[in-house]
Design a protein around this nucleic acid. Structure first.
Length: 489
RNA sequence: GCCCCCAUCGUCUAGGGGACCAGGACGUGGCCCUUUCAAGGCCAAGACGGGAGUUCGAAUCUCCCUGGGGGCACCA
């Protein structure tokens, strides 16, 4: 079995594309087949040089390794369509010679005028097959007049029906009269998607096509192309589309999408990377859209997915992008990760945010924040204060707790500092014992005393547990922060 | 407008004629735990779009309607 992912480098790598790639990859890995990456760079107008890097980086980040394609080569190369132009030209001309296609000399202006006319007359827009039945004389004259500028169009059957078998949906029948004499080869010598895709899938011996639902309407077109070539069409399945979280419109339509709360949700693979998501969580998440593991399980490894993945559990219905589930799932993966591993992954995040990184300290911080973060980036807000070189205490109003004033807070912090300074050991346990006793002596609620200390030492209202935090900070640093807070009251 | 696809809790889904007064998960609400915030535990609310038909029996099969989505380029 040979499957392919064939993206077009015309923009950033989209999560919908990643899902298609993932399903193809899973299919190949499950069946012991090959996963081919082919770059369909035939649109010179929309070509975006950054997108290839984004694509390759994204695939690698997700762990979707390809057996043939860019950077790895393979026996069916080249894997960039722009390097295969001679093949498309050869096969397009072959179709012309065989009478399955023809040269069309119509100008863009004529096509545009035709379209306007059809629209005005409330007719379906489409090419009127003007050049399909030219006499050799007319053909020669037009060739002369246009200076040999032409496109090659496919001769679509004028009547009858075409049935395509979809692995997920069964037989789908189309009326041939709906089909156009579409362009196979553009006037710049580049192929259109239809030609290049069919030629390459055949030449690369692709056995199964797993592509997004939005391609369904091109299936009969491709079927006719395969028939004209006398080639066998690969087995085909159309994966359900992913809709916006609102369920309105497909996700890939715009690169900016918003959830109900108005939060901008990531839709580009690099946004997930930069957003602090874990690739294993994203893969698990994507796997659950349109496919289910069974046994009421939602969390599972890629290995388990590979073992179980097949088309029979793919749901043909499109659905909304359940982004809030990714946050939960990412949190699950973070909590299940070994502390050491998490520390290692957190380092570059802190480094990028401008904090001086320190693996030793990070190892000690991780157990305190692990259950409190959903993304790696969350750690910045939760634990940045551990790494701030010159920590500044927050303003007085953030230190003074409910039911207290500056004077009582100052006194309480001073007393706490004295107790902490006098502790034989600075363990969280020893601190807690001493400070609970102190709170009782001062007639304060634990929340009042601990809250003031929390604000003083972390600068935050929300933080990891206070005593563990101070233990990691170290007695010297903790006391320093408390004293600076006192000075500010 | 034309063609095509799809239809179970708000969302992702399980379900393949009786095992379904429909199961799981996210989210939401409540309680417990608790120095904040989480995590965790327990509990709760919450769906088969509508109508015909087939059948002893339909979430499951058929048809119609409705709704949603996709496609109609010298873009992929």
């Amino acid at each position: 079995m040979r499957v392919r992912f064939a993206p077009s480098p015309t923009g950033p790598f989209h999560i919908g594309g990643a899902r298609t790639a993932l399903f193809n990859w899973l299919f190949a890995r499950h069946h012991g087949g090959k996963f081919i990456l082919r770059i369909e760079d035939t649109d010179r107008k929309r070509y975006d040089p950054d997108s290839l890097r984004l694509l390759l980086d994204g695939l690698r980040w997700l762990g979707l390794d390809w057996d043939e394609g860019p950077e790895v080569g393979g026996p069916y190369g080249p894997y960039f369509q722009s390097e295969r132009l001679h093949l498309y030209q050869y096969w397009a001309n072959w179709l012309v010679e065989q009478g399955h296609a023809y040269r069309c000399y119509c100008s863009e202006e004529r096509l545009e005028a035709l379209r306007q006319q059809q629209l005005a007359a409330k007719q379906d827009p489409g090419y009127d097959r003007h050049c399909r039945n030219l006499t050799p004389e007319e053909r020669a004259r037009l060739h002369q007049e246009t200076g040999g500028q032409f496109v090659i169009r496919f001769k679509m059957p004028l009547d009858g029906e075409t049935t395509v078998h979809d692995l997920l949906r069964g037989d789908i029948t189309f009326d041939n009269r709906q089909l156009q004499d579409l362009v196979l080869l553009k006037s710049d010598g580049y192929p259109t998607y239809h030609l290049a895709n069919v030629v390459d899938d055949h030449l690369m011996a692709i056995s199964h096509i797993l592509r997004a639902e939005e391609w369904i309407s091109t299936a009969p077109i491709h079927k006719h192309l395969y028939d004209a070539f006398g080639w066998e069409m690969p087995q085909i399945a159309h994966l359900p589309v992913i809709l916006n979280p609102s369920g309105k419109g497909k996700l890939s339509k715009r690169s900016v999408a918003f959830s109900e709360g108005g939060r901008k949700i990531p839709v580009l693979v690099h946004e997930f990377i930069e957003g602090g998501y874990l690739p294993e969580a994203v893969v698990n998440f994507l796997t659950n859209i349109g496919w289910s593991f069974g046994d009421d399980r939602e969390v599972f490894t890629v290995q388990e997915t590979i073992e179980r993945f097949d088309l029979s559990r793919v749901n043909p219905a499109g659905g909304a992008f359940p982004i809030e589930k990714l946050d939960w799932l990412n949190g699950v993966y973070i909590r299940e990760m070994a502390d050491d591993e998490l520390a290692r992954r957190l380092l570059p995040v802190f480094e990028k945010a401008g904090y001086p990184v320190d693996l030793e300290r990070m190892r000690r911080v991780v157990p305190l924040i692990k259950v409190r973060i959903k993304t790696l980036n969350d750690a910045l807000d939760m634990a940045g204060f551990f790494f701030t070189p010159s920590f500044t205490p927050p303003p007085a109003e953030e230190i003074v707790q409910k039911g207290m004033d500056a004077a009582s807070t100052k006194a309480a912090l001073q007393a706490a500092a004295d107790r902490l300074a006098g502790l034989p050991d600075f363990s969280a346990k020893a601190q807690e014992e001493a400070l609970r006793a102190l709170a009782a002596e001062l007639g304060l609620k634990t929340g009042q005393l601990f809250g003031a200390l929390r604000a003083a030492t972390t600068g935050q209202q929300v933080s990891p547990p206070l005593f563990e935090t101070m233990e990691v900070l170290g007695r010297e640093e903790a006391l320093k922060r408390i004293r600076r807070a006192i000075a500010q009251l």
